[in-house]
Simulated assay, not measured.
Amino acid sequence: MRYLTTSEVAKILNVSERQLRRMRQTEGAGPAFVTFGVKTIRYSPAAVSRWLNEHSSD
């Protein structure tokens, strides 16, 4: 499985990378993420899709 970078997810969500980092610091405010090592943060496409579905204004 290929995980998405912060930059890629920010573009999908139409927010800045900085805003996405802030969302990550607030529990439940953004899509679920995984860490690889100390500084590498990635998002699964399924988690991003799920988050978008839960937070859409349809």
Rank of each mutant, 00 (worst) to 15 (best):
M1G: 15
M1Q: 14
R2K: 12
R2H: 13
R2Q: 11
R2W: 13
R2I: 15
Y3G: 12
Y3F: 15
L4P: 06
L4E: 04
L4K: 02
L4H: 05
L4Y: 05
L4Q: 06
T5L: 05
T5G: 06
T6I: 14
T6Y: 04
S7F: 10
S7G: 08
S7H: 13
E8L: 04
E8P: 00
E8G: 02
V9C: 04
V9E: 01
V9F: 02
A10P: 00
K11E: 11
K11I: 07
K11T: 09
K11M: 06
I12R: 08
I12D: 02
L13M: 08
L13S: 03
L13D: 04
N14S: 12
N14A: 09
N14H: 09
N14G: 11
V15K: 07
S16E: 08
S16N: 08
S16A: 08
E17F: 05
E17C: 10
E17Y: 04
E17I: 08
E17S: 10
R18D: 11
R18V: 15
Q19P: 11
Q19D: 07
L20R: 02
L20W: 02
R22D: 03
M23L: 09
M23Y: 11
R24P: 00
R24T: 02
Q25L: 12
Q25P: 00
Q25C: 07
Q25R: 14
T26Q: 10
E27D: 11
E27I: 14
E27W: 15
E27F: 15
G28E: 04
G28P: 06
G28I: 04
G28Q: 05
G28M: 04
G28H: 05
A29P: 09
A29F: 06
G30D: 04
G30V: 03
G30W: 01
G30K: 03
P31I: 00
P31T: 01
P31H: 02
P31R: 03
P31E: 04
A32V: 07
F33I: 07
F33S: 03
F33C: 05
F33Y: 07
V34P: 12
V34C: 12
V34M: 10
V34I: 12
T35Y: 06
T35C: 08
F36E: 11
F36P: 02
F36Q: 09
F36V: 15
G37E: 09
G37S: 11
G37C: 08
K39M: 07
K39L: 07
T40Y: 14
T40W: 13
T40F: 15
I41D: 01
I41K: 04
I41G: 02
R42T: 03
R42G: 05
R42F: 08
R42Y: 10
R42S: 06
Y43T: 00
Y43Q: 02
Y43D: 00
S44L: 15
S44Q: 10
P45K: 07
P45E: 07
P45L: 09
A46I: 13
A46C: 10
A46F: 15
A46V: 12
A47H: 13
A47K: 14
V48W: 00
V48F: 01
V48Q: 03
V48S: 03
S49T: 13
S49V: 12
W51M: 04
W51F: 11
W51L: 03
L52P: 06
L52E: 09
L52R: 10
L52G: 08
L52V: 14
N53S: 13
N53L: 13
E54S: 08
E54I: 02
H55W: 03
H55T: 14
H55R: 11
S56W: 03
S57L: 15
S57P: 14
S57A: 14
S57V: 11
S57H: 14
